[in-house]
Amino acid sequence: MQVSSFQSALQRGPIVSDGAMATELEKRGVATDSALWSATAMLDHPEAITAVHRSYFEAGAQIATTNTYQANVPAFVNAGIAAPRARKLIQQAVTLADQSRDAYVAAHPERPVWVAGSIGPYGAYLADGSEYTGHYNLDEVAYQEFHRERLELILTSGVDLLALETMPKLSEVQALTHLIDQTWPQTPYWVSFSIADPTHLSDGTPLAEAANWVATQSHAVAVGVNCTALENIEPALKTLAQATDLPLIVYPNSGDEYDPQTKTWQPTELSHQFDSFVPRWLAAGARIIGGCCRTTPADIETIAAEVQSN
């Protein structure tokens, strides 16, 4: 793991992360309208995943997030994939990100880049939008048993750090980080929460309380929010900055608005306006900036340009 180089880079200045995987897979003809979402691509289109990773590196991203957010053995089994193959697919997702990183570094040895292993919440496995509500409850042991196998597969396949992302519940994060510290000590991770508004997690927990707790964990390298509207980021950063001295990470959606009736995205006047927002996020303390749903390599290129010029 390259955690020391990652933390050193954070101290030198902001880092750019990647953007949406599913959006770019769809552009390449991969259907993502199933419970497996972007993980579907690992069944038949691994080359598309590699192409997406490469496109983000070329746009200026320094972090590739593995295509494992919704990839876990129970989800694959529910989709009719045998467990042994499911395990290999999760490992393959890490390999694809690593190979993309290695190829990029070979051509750009002067530019440090990292691979983050994506760990989505239990709510993502439910595939009913629960990561945006937190309307589920497991005890610590049950959360740990759900996450354990995927964590092991990802960590043994070789990532630089973990991305615990779109987390709507502090209790799940606590269970996850306890498991990581007990089973894979010294593993670095960031925690990125799903929020209902700039001061609360999706389940109602105060964002400041959650960030303050994460800051007490010795292997947390950053804390922040993702998969929320562009306009929520600056006030969320102010909430976070008052609660913790940890580096802050943000990766919002593109600005498009989701219509749950038609299950489609519609552009708004704020769509893809990263050039307007990024300078304010940097001023508010953001140290890692990327994109979530509907963001593109063009958005990451804009973010990288703003980071470089500010």
Results as ranks from 00 to 15, higher is better:
Thr302His: 00
Arg101Lys: 06
Asp44Val: 08
Ile288Asp: 06
Pro46Lys: 05
Leu176Lys: 05
Ala31His: 09
Leu153Phe: 03
Thr95Lys: 14
Ala236Leu: 10
Thr32Trp: 05
Leu36His: 01
Ala86Gln: 05
Leu176Phe: 13
Ala284His: 05
Glu47Leu: 02
Glu140Asn: 06
Thr95Met: 12
Glu131Val: 15
Ala59Thr: 07
Glu172Gly: 12
Ala22Asp: 00
Tyr125Ser: 01
Ala31Gln: 11
Ile233Tyr: 12
Asn72Val: 07
Val214Pro: 03
Thr183Lys: 15
Gln70His: 06
Glu47Lys: 10
Ala283Asn: 11
Thr228His: 07
Thr199Arg: 03
Ser100Ala: 15
Thr262Cys: 12
Gly29Glu: 05
Asn72Glu: 06
Ser194Asp: 14
Thr296Asp: 00
Ala82Phe: 10
Thr199Ala: 01
Gln144Tyr: 14
Gln91Arg: 08
His45Phe: 04
Thr296Gln: 02
Ala298Ile: 05
Ala83Trp: 12
Asp18Tyr: 10
Ala31Trp: 12
Phe277Val: 06
Asn72His: 07
Ala241Lys: 09
Ala304His: 10
His53Leu: 07
Glu152Leu: 04
Met167Lys: 14
Tyr136Ala: 02
Ala86Asp: 04
Gly19Arg: 02
Glu306Leu: 01
Thr295Gln: 03
Gln182Arg: 07
Ala64Trp: 06
Ala51Glu: 10
Leu153Asn: 14
Ile90Val: 15
Arg280Gln: 11
Ser254Asn: 03
